[in-house]
Amino acid sequence: MGNVLVVVEQLNGKTGEITFEMLGKGRELASALGGELHALVIGGQADELGIADKVWVMGDGALAHYTSANHKAALVAAISAISPRVTLIGNTSIGMDLAAGASAATGIPLIAYCNALRVEGGQVVGTSQIYGGKVLAEVAPEDGACIVSVLAGAFPASAGRSDKTPVLETLAPPALDNRVRFVRLIEPEAADVDITKAAVVVSVGRGIQSADNIELADGLADALGGVVGASRPVTDAGWLPKSRQVGKSGLRVKPKLYLALGISGAPEHLEGMKDSGLIIAINQDASAPIFDVAHYGVVGDLFEIVPALTEKIKG
């Protein structure tokens, strides 16, 4: 059997883009393996999943709110019942809970941080993006089955949508694991600035070195009529509010101009800005991955270049 199972990710009743990215790739893998494409919905709704041959729906109200313990137990039970050759899970916060836990519970190997997948001679071969995007490891399971955690944006979501109606089948949920209990979802506080609406984003990373140096970016952003954004280390350090964070756990931006100052370009950051119109990066490390997505790059000292650039723009 060469069935592919896609674990549907739903938060707040909405199906995440990653689900359609996986469904599109899953369709291709299922054909190559001579199997079917299945989707698994845990405690949610089965709309929009027409590309799948079959949608398994597990659980009801008790599983409606995501919790790591309950949803892991549900996934493990589903994998045992369905025995898929390949199980695809998004490498999101939820996927980070589920993929490795399911691997440990089932003994099925896990290919994590996957950004490419193919079938070669009947075997699934995945590419895992490791070392901050600096190395790609091509790996294959020793035996048949594998679980794969898929990076967001690795595959086109358009290939995962269809108007067809899939076969629905219910799956009995396992005993609840109430050691983790949902309390509430907290929406982000209204921000002073909406960086997703700005035409110009001047973003700073670890290379900015201190909270005091943020004013350099403020000056440049003012001169360009833009706003200041940041990579994770800067907001974690409290130098800028969380509402300024660009990337996987922050916001996705697509300005006309994205200036990356002292940002190395971890995959989580690139996910949030790589579709910007024009990307210019200034960094001291010539091998920084940010230069792989930037249109123009400068290897140099931002503390020299940024003030000079601001002056020049102000005229």
Binding site: L11, N12, G16, Y66, T67, S68, T92, S93, I94, R179, V180, R181, F182, V183, R184, L185, I186, E187, P188, K242, S243, Q245, K248, S249, G250, L251
Partner: peptide
């Protein structure tokens, strides 16, 4: 009581035994 972070600044709160 833990906070788990999702995309877009949304956070989940959970009690964990």
């Amino acid at each position: 009581v833990v906070r788990q972070e999702y995309a877009g600044g949304v956070t989940g709160e959970f009690e964990v035994d």
